Simulated assay, not measured.
Amino acid sequence: MKQLLRKLVFPYTYSSEAYVKALRNKYNIDIGENCMIWSPNKVYIDIQRPHLLHIGDYVKITSGVNIICHDYSRSVFMSVPGYENVGEARETYIGDNVFIGMNSIILMGSVIGDNCIIGAGSVVSGKFEKNSIIVGNPAKKICSLEDYYRRKKEQELNSAKLFVKKWHEKYGRYPSINEMTNAFSWLYVPHTLENLQENSNLFNYNGINDEIFKNNYLNTKPQFETYEEFLIYCKKE
């Protein structure tokens, strides 16, 4: 009933799938496959110049994001004596596998390469090469995707231990493997195709390339043989 009401009130933004479909078919935006838009009724994607906007495959757009394809600041010129109208047009381009953090603004003419992460609250203008971490106002590249990955990988086990510790402090017990969610499942679930199929709830991710994900998973190994071994490790710390 709730979903039906949302569909009636927000016919094009009641879900990510509905918004992507509307952008592609109703507004003629060039948007790729397997894109994910969280809180679509809180996202603004400029439809005034659809031929000047490209959004690639596997793009993740979070709540409060604005993607802009025009600039009406020229209106100021026309109220200043002696000034003429000055038109402007630039393509706004977002590559494949890009994550756009909450409340970020992508300004007209921005070019964002593949595999980029844009930090929350960033104001993006200009050209950014692929595999970049982009943060700030004005947004700047702060490091490469590889550097960011290595840093996050080094911190992963401490993050998992913190999750367990705080859960225990709050609830007086240790979390089940399902309560750990899909965030840390690679640490302690054997990397087999059988486990992917039997424990789909632990490997349910939005906006990713399934083929690459499976290859990465099956060609790596967990740090712990079982979830119980992982919990024993956390309890010792």
Results as ranks from 00 to 15, higher is better:
residue 168 H to M: 09
residue 122 S to Y: 05
residue 97 N to Q: 02
residue 123 V to I: 15
residue 10 F to K: 05
residue 18 A to P: 02
residue 18 A to H: 02
residue 138 P to Y: 06
residue 34 N to P: 04
residue 196 L to D: 12
residue 157 L to A: 13
residue 145 L to G: 09
residue 136 G to N: 11
residue 128 F to C: 07
residue 22 A to I: 08
residue 224 F to L: 04
residue 226 T to N: 06
residue 144 S to G: 10
residue 109 G to A: 01
residue 187 L to Y: 07
residue 99 F to Q: 07
residue 44 Y to Q: 08
residue 163 F to W: 13
residue 179 E to D: 14
residue 231 L to I: 15
residue 224 F to K: 03
residue 176 S to W: 01
residue 172 G to R: 12
residue 53 L to G: 09
residue 205 Y to R: 12
residue 78 M to P: 03
residue 230 F to D: 09
residue 97 N to Y: 13
residue 108 M to P: 04
residue 41 N to P: 01
residue 55 I to K: 04
residue 237 E to G: 12
residue 153 K to V: 07
residue 4 L to F: 13
residue 115 N to V: 06
residue 125 S to D: 05
residue 64 G to L: 09
residue 229 E to L: 12
residue 3 Q to F: 06
residue 175 P to T: 12
residue 109 G to N: 05
residue 151 R to N: 13
residue 53 L to T: 07
residue 221 K to F: 11
residue 195 N to Y: 13
residue 4 L to H: 12
residue 139 A to Y: 12
residue 142 I to P: 03
residue 35 C to F: 00
residue 23 L to R: 00
residue 27 Y to R: 00
residue 78 M to K: 11
residue 186 W to C: 11
residue 182 N to V: 09
residue 101 G to L: 06
residue 228 E to D: 09
residue 127 K to I: 11
residue 194 E to P: 09
residue 168 H to L: 05
residue 81 P to A: 12
residue 133 I to E: 01
